[in-house]
Design a protein around this nucleic acid. Structure first.
Lengths: 334, 334
DNA sequence: TGAAGGGCATCATACGTATGACGTGACGGA
DNA sequence: TCCGTCACGTCATACGTATGATGCCCTTCA
């Protein structure tokens, strides 16, 4: 009686039982009946629909309406909480506009054929931390907004002021006296990571006596920890590390601990993102704060503007250093 | 020419250009033309479709086919990497069966009206760590599988052997000499958390001289850290803590550090999940390992079986203690 | 009495695809 | 010559919904 197939009871079924036409049912359930259908009928139809467990067929509705009422959020992975916060921000805005938000993890270098992109019907795409090419592929002509990635072809985007964030981080380390710094770089091909690397090089280069090393690391914490451990065992070792995300910073803590190095006494560590966990590491992590929530919020806003044909300027969000306890002057060279 | 509206070029458009009927285009792009359409035509149509940027309209396809080719994974939040691993496992299996997987975070106590559940068209639901009621609501009669939650009404489920996991954890602590243990309980209403609490009580009760305390904590690390800090400041304080997830364990580390307590010397800590981060905390975290990947894998498998009318027995996955370095004998009472 | 209007509901159609049921020529064998 | 077969396609229709264009009946008012 209930669990037959999908949305098996149709508007026509309800209509039959209620003794009205399918049109009338449609009007009623969509609340467009005012002045067209009588009170009594409305109540009867709603009652019967409820009782029969009527659910409008989504596909049919979309087909007819021409819009899906959903936006896709494409992200590189779901194992990083940062993207969860992005989702949160975007979802809230979407909701206020009657738009759903479906998450779509782009697992890796997928070889989707020409006809298999988002298998879900969507009205637009928010592509977070993905290459522009990938994003265009996914969106296939739909309204597209890049998050934490800039476009070379005029696609609207929301980005962070990474140059500023990195500048503050490096400046902070320099002021503390650090000269040999490690950039623990996430191993993925994304605009945001390239940008950070460039900013790191730039900031290090402009400071006399400073020396930077780039170390590519998997985002998988245990692997990263091992990679970093090997690097930290070299001499002379860096006295500070700037990490592309807070999880990597935790991995650096671990690598340091295994070498008997104390944070921040022997090694200063700076993360990126300011995930909730950053506040409860031991010691609490100094990190470049990026608001995923704001990223999602403004991204969704831009996507809606884009859809509605409004001008959609790109936005740059602040990225600034939150100083906690994982940074200190370097150990005495003696 | 391209970015007009959604999937604006239809099969009929392609047909017109190719000088064939819409049916033929449909046959060709779905690879069902063998013996019905000539080589030459096939190649021409594919070429033209590609050139025109034809994308089948998903809604229409679903409407016609009666199935969507997608399963929904409903989770409590996206800010916990565990659910990312569940997604990974489920997605892989789905892919092998031509099924997509869309993630659907159930933000909280949402007040969706009667007609607004998954706004996306789906064929089935995997409900992870949600209440059975919520799950039924979401699935609305579609094939449903509960993950990390057991059913009271015969819904197929995949669960962990939490009793066993908790038993090992408490047994481990008891053997080390701990008598006062804290259960840092996640503050959400889910079967899995109730089950852990019950198992904790049970295991503590059966061990002479052991005393258990339950402490409800937000899953938000900073809040949890504060809650735990207050608790640890009391006398006599517990000598060990069992946490409902690894992030909470990290929060406990932090709380301990703020009180000048060393892990594991002054306080032993056990987590749950065995997230990648557990291996790189300082000290590495002893934790009850739960494979989100397996959970997703078997869940998707069960969902497919259910859909195809095959028998779908519930499964119980192992949950066993991974001993690392966050547990040790309690400090001497002197 | 008749015209106008309001209240209530239906009709018909289109959205784009997939597919079982039909042609339609050409060719070959009897 | 006629029928069967094969190769290549098209026709028509249904999926379930949303909505502009109509229709019908009853009341009101000139």
């Amino acid at each position: 009686m209930t669990t037959d197939r999908a949305s098996r009871v149709t508007a026509a079924d309800v209509a039959r039982v209620a003794g009205v036409s399918q049109s009338t049912v449609s009007l009623v359930v969509n609340d467009r009946w005012h002045g067209r259908v009588g009170q009594a009928a409305v109540e009867r139809i709603l009652d019967i629909a409820e009782r029969m467990g009527y659910r409008p067929n989504v596909a049919a509705r979309i087909l007819r309406r021409g819009v899906t009422g959903a936006i896709a959020l494409a992200v590189p992975t779901l194992t990083n909480p940062f993207f969860g916060t992005v989702h949160g921000g975007a979802a809230r805005v979407g909701e206020a506009h009657g738009l759903g938000l479906t998450v779509f993890p782009v697992t890796s270098d997928d070889d989707h054929g020409p006809f298999t992109s988002p298998h879900q019907a969507i009205d637009g795409v928010l592509a977070c931390s993905l290459s522009e090419q990938k994003a265009r592929e996914l969106s296939a002509g739909l309204p597209l907004v890049l998050l934490d990635a800039a476009s070379e072809t005029g696609v609207p985007s929301v980005t962070f002021d990474l140059d500023r964030g990195v500048a503050e981080a490096i400046g902070h380390l320099y002021a503390l006296g650090h000269r040999r710094v490690l950039h623990v770089r996430g191993d993925r091909d994304a605009w945001t990571l390239h940008r950070r690397a460039a900013a790191f090089d730039n900031q290090v280069a402009r400071r006399p006596g400073m020396l930077g090393t780039e170390l590519r690391c998997s985002f998988h914490p245990p692997e990263a920890a091992e990679t970093v451990r090997v690097e930290l065992a070299r001499h002379p070792r860096p006295t500070a590390a700037l990490c592309d995300d807070d999880n990597l910073a935790v991995a650096v803590y671990s690598a340091a601990a295994r070498l008997g190095l104390a944070v921040p006494h022997d090694l200063s560590v700076i993360g990126t993102d300011d995930l909730p966990v950053a506040a409860v590491t031991t010691p609490p992590l100094t990190t470049i704060g990026l608001s995923g929530h704001e990223l999602g919020r403004l991204g969704m806003q831009a996507c809606i503007d884009l859809r509605d044909g409004r001008p959609t300027p790109s936005v740059i969000l602040p990225a600034s250093l939150r100083i906690r306890a994982s940074t200190a002057p370097p150990p005495q060279p003696g």
